[in-house]
Design a protein around this nucleic acid. Structure first.
Lengths: 135, 135
DNA sequence: TTGTGATTAAATAATAATTATCAGTAAGCT
DNA sequence: AGCTTACTGATAATTATTATTTAATCACAA
């Protein structure tokens, strides 16, 4: 599946690329390049951080994954390009997907722009931090 | 007005701070720290870029301005903290405010999080780039 | 006013994230 | 198998931002 998309884009299918996509697919967190790099270390001890960055960039351009910037000083990645809201904890910075959200259609909004996609970020306290804050 | 808010937060009112807030208020673009620094150069030739960063950070913490991250590798700033959507051109990266937008209420959404605010970014082609793309 | 204490600004160094370079290597066709 | 081209890994470079240090400036009160 990843392989076929890569081929469509005239990109080579390499073990590194499959590993990075796999790592991203197997998590519900929204890891940074650094975090993906760390996770893959055990499986690919020789993988370079630069390769992770380049591969993620390649995937974004091929529309295989999406890049998120929730307001930190680093990017996070999501193994789906389907547009869906993200919720960020203002205390611990965990990022989760908001499922079952009836999608908003912004393509017909009153603007001179031709809207193609959107990003919606909700901020607040996650259940864990909510409890901790009650002290 | 800026002065009074600063005083409320026990912050000193300095020419640099007034200049930075003024520069941000006088533009509808959403400049980066670097851009603000450049604009102020003529007026305050001795101002340091670090001062711009610190001042913007101070303003954000005092809730005088808001910091935006539209998915670039740098932050942009907006002289209002009122929550409103931003539209970003996927071609030229211009950022504009979406006015007259009935605000969405996400505080009662079905989630375990306690939502306090949100950020909505719409992406598409601005009128200028739309025309240019038709070639 | 002017002194006084605390905060701020400027200059610069440091850090963090990301990107560029480049030589060696591995995919993918023929 | 061999050739071509793209990819990887190591590292250097760049960019954005933050920390540090010293000197200047502000706000208040005498």
């Amino acid at each position: 599946m990843v392989a076929s998309v890569l081929k469509q884009h005239n990109l080579k299918v390499t073990p590194q690329r499959l590993a990075i996509f796999g790592a991203l697919s197997n998590t519900t967190s929204h890891p940074t390049a650094e975090e993906i790099y760390t996770v893959i270390q055990s499986e690919f001890p020789t993988m370079s951080l630069a390769t992770v960055y380049k591969t993620l960039d390649t995937f974004v351009k091929s529309n295989l994954i999406q890049q998120l910037n929730v307001g930190e000083n680093s990017f996070r990645y999501d193994a789906t390009t389907l547009s869906h809201p993200h919720i960020i904890c203002t205390n611990c910075s965990v990022v989760v997907d908001l499922e079952n959200f009836m999608d908003l259609d912004f393509t017909k909004i009153n603007t001179d722009f031709e809207i193609t996609y959107h990003k919606l970020f909700l901020y607040g306290l996650c259940p864990t931090c909510k409890v901790a804050h009650q002290d």
